[in-house]
Amino acid sequence: MAKLLIIVISLFTCVSFLHDPIHRYLIDDDEEQRTWCMVHFTPSIEIFNSFINIFHFIVPFGLKLISAMSIIGSIATRRASVKKQNSYMEHIKMQFRKHKHLIISSSCLVILAMPRLIIYFASECMKSAREPLIFLIGYFV
């Protein structure tokens, strides 16, 4: 099931961004001796692109958070049914302490993805430097 899910998610991600390379084109700039990669979306494609970027930001975080909460809840429920001397809420607190790395990792996912989302919505055209390697490294970090 996991192998199938990995294939489906990979295909969905590729298909959801397929519109981007279709709407890109190159412009040769003789004055500055460089080639610019330009993108031009129609208003409907721009709305779809914004939706896809937000979707790819929120869904992984939501799924990871929901799965962490369900793991913690199911373990606490099982332990509460076996160990009756502690209440259900005490078991929940113990499981949160024990599995806090699951919540922290989903929060880190949001923190690491936030700059990409901010750059997407706040970026405008700018004159790039002659050595774009540092911008490329910053983007991939």
Rank of each mutant, 00 (worst) to 15 (best):
S128Q: 15
L26A: 08
G138Y: 11
F96Y: 06
V15A: 03
A80Q: 09
H23T: 14
T42Q: 09
I27S: 07
L112F: 05
K93P: 01
K98M: 08
G138D: 06
R97T: 10
L26K: 14
W36T: 00
I9L: 13
S50W: 13
C14T: 08
R97M: 09
P132T: 07
R24I: 06
Y120N: 12
V39S: 15
E124V: 05
A68N: 00
I58D: 03
L109W: 11
H99K: 01
P21M: 02
F121A: 05
L65G: 01
R97E: 05
R24M: 15
F41H: 08
C14K: 10
M69T: 01
L18T: 12
N49A: 13
F135N: 12
I111K: 07
S106T: 04
V15G: 02
E90G: 02
A113W: 07
F96I: 03
M94V: 03
W36M: 08
T77L: 12
Y120C: 07
D20N: 07
K83Y: 11
E46Y: 13
R130F: 09
S106P: 04
C125R: 06
L136Y: 10
K83E: 15
T35Q: 15
G73V: 07
S44C: 03
F61Q: 06
E31K: 10
S44F: 08
A122W: 11
M114A: 15
P132E: 11
S106V: 01
E124D: 06
G138Q: 11
Y25W: 06
T42D: 03
G73I: 09
G73M: 14
A68P: 05
R34N: 05
I134T: 13
R34G: 00
L117M: 09
F41D: 01
K100L: 01
M38K: 15
E31L: 02
H19T: 10
H19M: 13
S50K: 14
D28V: 12
I58C: 02
V39K: 14
E124F: 13
Q85C: 07
E31M: 03
L109E: 10
P115G: 00
P60D: 00
L109M: 15
F55K: 07
S10R: 07
